[in-house]
């Protein structure tokens, strides 16, 4: 579904990604882990062109999104993204946060968008919050709304950029539960995370990045029990 072919990314003289190739199949859940500064988030952000790779190709469903002539807006509409700091629209109610993109970007009828939005809010356990503003929600609730906001666009792929890193510990679980539920529906997911237990439990594959290189691309069991690289061993010792 997503094919990443030897991409690099530099910010000025700083080389963040140094040639990464991998594939993510349909329905696959991939966890991207590694020390901070390793390029995890940049790799994820390349997948919906929030960062444009310096070189290399990314193909989604056979369409090359890194082609300069590609329709970036249309591509992004098929890829949901959830951010560390939620980024809900503060001047809109929760319901409007959800219905904005489908109605204004996809041209969905307002009534249909609202119906879908309410269904999704119910699915993430926030049906009663439709009419409040985001500032009234807890961090965990905000993140669940953010997930629902992405899902209402019916994306084929969901990207998660450290979705629980900004949350109080007691709110991490509610968000991970929603993500687990999503994984079980067969959604294709790429998740940058520091939640090792979650990665082990939910993902089909672990991508371990260090210093802009993909050091491991293995099933979680193998990665957590017997990592190949010395760097991954060190990393796991520190985080567990």
């Amino acid at each position: 579904m997503i094919k990443i072919d030897n991409i690099t990314k530099s910010f000025g003289s700083l080389n963040v990604l140094k040639g990464i190739s991998t594939e993510i199949g349909k329905g696959e859940v991939v966890a991207i882990i590694g020390p901070s500064g390793s390029g995890k988030s940049t790799l994820l952000r390349c997948m919906n062109l929030l960062e444009v790779p310096t070189s290399g190709k990314i193909t989604i469903n056979g369409q090359e999104i890194t082609d300069p002539k590609a329709n970036v807006m249309a591509i992004r509409q098929q890829i949901g993204m959830v951010f560390q700091h939620f980024h809900l629209f503060p001047h809109m109610t929760v319901l409007n946060n959800l219905t904005y993109a489908p109605t204004k970007v996809k041209g969905m009828a307002k009534s249909e968008a609202e119906k879908k939005a309410r269904e999704l809010l119910a699915r993430v356990g926030l049906a009663d919050k439709a009419d409040v503003f985001p500032s009234r929600l807890s961090g965990g609730q905000k993140q669940r709304v953010a997930i629902a906001r992405s899902l209402v666009m019916e994306p084929q792929i969901m990207l998660f950029d450290e979705p629980t890193s900004a949350l109080d510990p007691e709110m991490v679980k509610e968000v991970l539960e929603v993500m687990k539920g999503l994984a079980h529906t067969g959604m294709t997911m790429a998740i940058v995370t520091h939640e090792m237990r979650f990665a082990e439990e939910v993902s089909d594959r672990i991508l371990f990045l260090d210093d802009g290189r993909l050091l491991e691309d293995t099933p979680p069991k193998q990665f957590f029990q017997n990592p190949k690289s010395e760097r991954a061993k060190q990393f796991l010792e520190k985080v567990r």
Binding site: N48, L50, M73, A74, I75, R76, Q77, I79, G80, M81, F83, H85, F86, H87, L88, F89, P90, H91, Y100, A101, K104, V105, R149, S150, M153
Partner: peptide, 26 residues
Amino acid sequence: DKGQWEAAKALGVPYRRMMLDIILPQ
């Protein structure tokens, strides 16, 4: 907040709409 721009972009909102509906009001 830069995140507002990114959230709008990630949803596929075109530049003009993003400015008028998301960024300018804030």
